[in-house]
């Protein structure tokens, strides 16, 4: 928690935040030309940027991806849904470095099959966290069904970052370290290992992936969580069912990631 607030005091971390945001937006904006779901999201090789930045710049990447996504959205029609885009992308930049540390840390460079699997798990977790928040928010507002947006964001993030983040980190990470630009070296020392870190990691994975599954099931009418059923309300856009049904998952996800 604290590092997310304190980074604003350090000039270099402010610069890293602006750079993460601008790199993300600069690669997002040109791809606004060929959207998949126009106006809401689009195919983005840029989606690897927050994950790469997360490993290099730590918390600056969380704020950076949130701001960068917002700038990108300005060029595709900003609306109330962008608050959820902000929050979702905040997690997208925050989860990778935290989850990586919880899984033992070390250089995020794929040297063995084990490294690849760990990296891909981290990317999956970050992608699912982002997709859950964005998909939930836009369905809550009644703009886009969860199965459309939640799944598109998940796959976009997963494919782009799953391929590009490990490959670019392999070249970037050692260089950035030798230049003394890594977040951890700048703030002198890695963050303290929180007790029960693995527990929070498991919780985050459970809420992110479980929430994703739940969202799809709720929309399809295959499952109605008991805490939704008590209200006895049905909306054709599923805004209410998805909105209330996923709320505990969202709260749990944020709690676990912030405690991670």
């Amino acid at each position: 928690m604290r590092e997310l607030r304190e980074l604003w005091r350090d000039t270099r971390l402010v610069v890293f935040t602006a750079i993460s945001a601008a790199l993300y937006a600069a690669i997002l904006v040109p791809f606004k030309v060929m959207p998949i779901i126009p106006g809401v999201t689009e195919l983005r090789p840029a989606n690897a940027v927050p994950v790469i930045c997360s490993f290099l710049f730590g918390p600056a990447a969380a704020w950076g991806s949130a701001i960068g996504n917002l700038i990108g959205d300005l060029f595709g029609g900003i609306g109330p849904g962008d608050a959820f885009g902000f929050a979702g992308n905040f997690l997208y930049g925050l989860v990778p470095y935290r989850a990586w540390e919880a899984m033992g840390g070390g250089d995020p460079v794929p040297r063995s099959l084990g490294d690849w699997l760990r990296l891909l798990f981290v990317v999956l977790l970050a992608a699912a966290a982002c997709a859950l928040v964005v998909g939930w928010g836009l369905n809550l507002l009644g703009f886009v069904p969860f199965p459309v947006l939640g799944n598109v964001v998940l796959w976009n993030n997963l494919i782009a970052a799953g391929v590009l983040a490990p490959l670019t980190l392999r070249v970037l990470y050692p260089r950035v370290r030798s230049g003394g630009f890594l977040y951890f070296e700048m703030v002198s020392g890695r963050p303290r290992r929180a007790r029960g870190q693995r527990l929070w990691l498991a919780g985050a994975a459970l809420f992110a992936l479980g929430g994703h599954l739940a969202g799809n099931l709720i929309y399809a009418g295959r499952w109605l969580p008991p805490w939704v059923a008590v209200f006895d309300v049905a909306t054709p856009s599923r805004a209410f069912e998805v909105g209330v049904g996923l709320a505990p998952f969202i709260v749990g996800l944020f709690a676990c990631v912030l405690l991670l």
Partner: peptide, 23 residues
């Protein structure tokens, strides 16, 4: 919104064309 946050947003706006040009 705190000054440093809004400044960072403005700086990101300024950097987008720079990085786009570099890309």
């Amino acid at each position: 919104v705190p000054y440093r946050v809004s400044f960072t947003v403005a700086m990101a706006f300024r950097l987008v064309p720079l990085f786009l040009g570099s890309a």
